[in-house]
Each structure stands twice: as C-alpha cells, then as structure tokens.
Amino acid sequence: MLGIETSCDETAAAVVDDGRQVRSSVVASQADLHARYGGVVPEVASRAHVELICDVIEQALVEAGSSLGELDAVAAVRGPGLAGALLVGVSAAKAISLASRLPYVGVHHHEAHLYAAMIEDPQLEPPLVTLVVSGGHTLLIAMEDHGRYRVLGETVDDAAGEAFDKVARFLGLGYPGGPEIDRLAREGDPEAIRFPRPMRAEGHDFSFSGLKTAVVQYVRAHPDTDVADVAASFQAAIVDVLVEKLLGAARETGIGTVVAGGGVAANSVLRERLLDLAVAGDVRVVLPSIALCTDNAAMVASVAAYRLAADGPTPLEAPVVPNLRLV
C-alpha cells in the first residue's frame, strides 16, 4: 500500500506491507515556511504540497525498493484537514490509481493516527482507548474494533497543540510552539505556578482556552517571572488534563489498553507520564515513536489496508471533505 498525506503542513508518502510493516516513510515538513506567520497558512501549505508531491512520492518508492507495479493499492487522506491541501494528496492518489490501475482508498486523518500504534506494536488489536492530540485535534476515541469507533470526548475550543502554539507565541518563543515549550520547560519548575486544570472532572471533553488566558494573565501580573517556570507549569497543567482524561476514559469503558497519537504525543513529559502509568500497571500503554505520532503517511497506508479489506476501494468521484467525521 502506498499512502499519501497532505491534510495540513506535512507532505508525506509511505509504503507499508500488510498494514503493519513500514517499508518507507518520507515526510517533507513545511514548518520553516509557516514559522514567520506563527501558524499554518492554508494557501502557503497548499502551494508547497504541489511543489513537493512528486519528489516525496518518488522518494518513498525508491526507499521502499518498490515500483508502482508492485503495489496493491494507493491511499490518501480525504479529510478532515485544509481543503486546498487535502486535494493535492487526493488528486495525486487518484492519478496513480488511473496510471497504474490500482484501487484508490480515501481515509480519515484521525483514524490514521489510531493506526500509528498498530505499526508500533504489530500484535496490537482493539479494543483500545486512543488520545489523538495535535495542533488541529484533541480527541478521545474508543476503538471497539477495526472500523468501529466511539468519540468519547473532544475539545470545545482550542486543540491542545493550538494552546501550545498560542502560549509559545505569547511568551515570545518560536513556532511550532510544542517543541519550543517542551525544550524550555526542562529548565523550569513545573510546580512554580499552579495553573488551572480545566474541566478536569467533568466528562471527557477538553477546553484549553481558559488555561491559555490564565497564562497570559499570570505573566502580565508577574512580568519578572521566569519564562521557563511558566512553560514548565503550563505544560504540566495540559499534561495532567490529558493523562487524567485518558485514564478516566479507560476506566469508564473498561478497556485496558491506551494509545496516543498526534504531534502533542511527541511531548516528552506526556510520554514520561504515560510510560509511568504502564509501569504502575494501571493500564497497558502503546506509545508510537515520535515520527509515527506527528503527521506521516505510514499511518495512512496502514489504516488504508484495513479499510480496503473491509469496505473495498473508494470511488474516484469521492470528494475531499475538510470537516469529515469519524463516526
């Protein structure tokens, strides 16, 4: 399976065998292009995808040591994501489908994030509780079986990664904000400032805009405060909420395995906390490598293998759906 991902600001292609074995995974990040704007600019992202798509696909095939003739199918993310960006990957996949007479499979971006864990642990099978956290999404999903999902909770305002970006920008750090805060937080005290843990007890939904406001208010009131302490304390608050919500969902559903995906799942403190949970024996934790957490096409090829087996090919008439829902 050849997978293609262009839903946001990474142009990616990968070749995966049998849904689990990665033969190649190429990601061309556009982060540098968007850095000066402090966030992803859809038109800039869409243009960059058109420039990069041929080389990224070619490199994925070369690294896999395979030709189009050896493929069984070609897949692309058809939503959710930026409309102008999505249609580059989808048009590319449809073109390969036409040229090589291969089935086309259009997949869901969040579902693909769930399958990163399947690649990390090839024996892994549902049921699972998954936390998908990135600049675009914050979701808690119960995966009961392949293709059977329940969205337990999602953010009511900012995505977790968006909160990282906004706080980083406010603190005068670079973009993307997640890695910047993660780095700076290592020099700070996570208990220096007690930021609120928003909606910690209520349901499975998330809300991060209040936390962002609390950080802004605190720094305005204490201009001499150590920025590293702010970063560490803000990060501790977000991680607390994410971990607690994930555990709560596992308890409520009775599902014993939890997995994480998305760019924020690359955060070092979140990863440590999740691994601590596993050591404590509360739940089984499958944490994909950082390269599989951030947007990539291996996860796209992985989920596409299951979707193709279960549902057959996607018609070439199928549109891109920027607000595609999982269930």
Partner: peptide, 19 residues
Amino acid sequence: MFTGLRVGVTTAKVLAQSL
C-alpha cells in the same frame, strides 16, 4: 482558480511521473 489549478496540475504531474 487556485483549487482548480492544484487539482489539474497535481493530476498531470503525478500521472506523468507514474507513466
């Protein structure tokens, strides 16, 4: 139209590369 151009140009270049 930007979106139209991206569909047409991407389709043309990936078709050509594949063939």
